[in-house]
């Protein structure tokens, strides 16, 4: 039966290709995510001693000579695998576990970029740090799909009046 061949071909095209895409998305997505986390951890340990606090006023024992607004923002896209799994999760509800590392990366990366922003200009510490997030709608016709998330970290960076003040 020649028509069996076409049926198999149709089956492969209909289900095989999306599955392959899913597999590729998973492998590549996992690799990129692992790489990103490695980079995040490395930079975090590098900047570990840089004071970053969320007080909305400058701590009393800091004496600053200058201050500025610093910010760091990052946009991260979902991979196809995460999106599909989240779609399945949306049917029954519950924690969207595949999105958690995505947002974790975004938060930490945004903080790091903010710190890098401050350090590049020789600032010594940041206070009043805030995090904000927004969703990027993608180009789907209904505008409902999500292309990715933006995470923004910002705060007030200060230069200490003397090196001594930083010793604390």
């Amino acid at each position: 039966m020649e028509s069996t061949f076409y049926q198999v071909l149709e089956l492969v095209l209909n289900f095989g290709l999306p599955f392959l895409l899913l597999l590729v998305a998973y492998i590549v997505g996992t690799m990129l995510e692992k790489g990103h986390f490695r980079s995040i951890r490395k930079r975090e340990s590098e900047y570990a001693t840089f004071p970053v606090v969320t007080f909305d006023t400058m701590p009393d024992d800091w004496s600053a000579s200058s201050s500025t607004l610093v910010s760091g923002s990052v946009v991260i896209s979902l991979d196809y695998f995460k999106r599909v799994i989240a779609g399945l999760r949306a049917i029954v509800g519950g924690r969207i576990k595949t999105y958690e590392p995505l947002l974790e990366r975004a938060r930490r990366e945004a903080m790091l970029r903010m710190i890098e922003d401050a350090r590049r200009d020789g600032y010594d510490a940041i206070f009043n740090v805030r995090l904000e997030t927004s969703r990027l709608a993608n180009s789907r016709r209904d505008g409902k799909g999500t292309a990715g998330v933006e995470m923004l970290a910002f705060g007030t960076a200060v230069k200490f009046a003397s090196r001594f003040a930083r010793a604390q």
């Binding site: 570990a48 001693t49 840089f50 004071p51 576990k97 958690e100 974790e104 930490r108």
Partner: peptide, 13 residues
């Protein structure tokens, strides 16, 4: 100020 790195495994299942 006590330097501390983000703890893993809190926000990610």
């Amino acid at each position: 100020f006590i330097p501390r790195q983000p703890r893993e495994g809190i926000n990610v299942s």
